Amino acid sequence: MSNTLHCPFPVLGVAAWSGTGKTTLLEKLLPKLREQGLSVAVIKHAHHQFDVDQPGKDSYKLRSAGAAPMLIASRQRFALMQETPGQEEPDLAYLLTLMAPHAPDLVIVEGFKAWPIPKLVLYRDGIGDPAILSDPWAQAVALSGEPPVALAPSVTRLNLNQHEEIARWVSEWVDQQRRSLA
């Protein structure tokens, strides 16, 4: 894991314990950010084995036969699949380099809690360890109630249930980051 990531675009982690509603929040935020003119890419960490193609399909057969990587494309989409045997955890720095050709305005990283990247931390009362609110990389925290621990003075406090407020903060944060990258 690298201590510093250098990207030509802002990267914002969304960190929370399972069951807090990361994906649900992103489903609400992404259309709002797109309405504001932002192109947003997402990198999602999966804690389990997953497959994007199905047994019996040609892409599955070719990947299983050793194609590395395997890219399947149609008029509507393409998917690049790469086997990573022996890799303990995905390398976020490498995954971010895959986003560079797409020139997004923002890359949201869901999961990857331990990586040293700016974060929007989500916390819902009674789910997970409240110590997540003390992440030194937290730029903002979105909570469903009062914070169970003291928040750093530099951290913006948001209401987890106010999607417009969170989208506005993300948009303003992106603008600030793009100015500092320029």
Rank of each mutant, 00 (worst) to 15 (best):
V52E: 12
K22H: 12
L26K: 15
K113W: 01
G56V: 11
I43H: 01
P10F: 02
L158G: 00
R77I: 03
H47V: 01
D105A: 15
R178F: 03
E88N: 08
Q176L: 07
T23N: 14
S39V: 04
A16V: 04
S154T: 12
A150K: 10
P90L: 12
H102R: 07
M1N: 13
R75H: 12
D51N: 14
W17R: 09
C7M: 09
F78Q: 10
A65Y: 12
V107M: 11
A140M: 04
Q162A: 03
L160C: 01
A131S: 10
T4I: 14
L160N: 00
S64M: 15
T4Y: 07
P136K: 11
K28M: 11
P10I: 04
V11W: 01
P8M: 06
W115A: 11
V170Q: 05
D125S: 07
K28L: 15
I72W: 05
A152S: 11
L38Y: 13
S18Q: 11
T4A: 15
G86P: 02
E35C: 15
P118F: 04
M1R: 13
I108S: 06
D135Q: 06
T23R: 14
D105L: 13
A167D: 09
L143N: 00
V174T: 07
V52Q: 15
E88L: 13
Q139E: 12
L12S: 05
A73S: 14
A150Y: 04
M70D: 00
L38K: 09
K32D: 11
V14S: 00
E164C: 05
L151N: 01
Q139I: 00
V14A: 03
P136L: 08
V141P: 05
V121R: 07
H102S: 07
W137L: 05
L62C: 01
W115N: 10
D135L: 14
Q49F: 06
E110T: 02
D51C: 03
A152C: 03
L25A: 07
A93F: 02
R63S: 06
L92H: 01
P101H: 11
P69L: 05
L71G: 02
L98V: 10
T156H: 09
L158N: 00
E83P: 03
S144P: 03
P118H: 08
V109L: 08
A46T: 09
G37D: 06
V149G: 01
L95Y: 06
A79T: 13
Y94W: 06
K22M: 13
R179W: 10
N159I: 08
K61W: 08
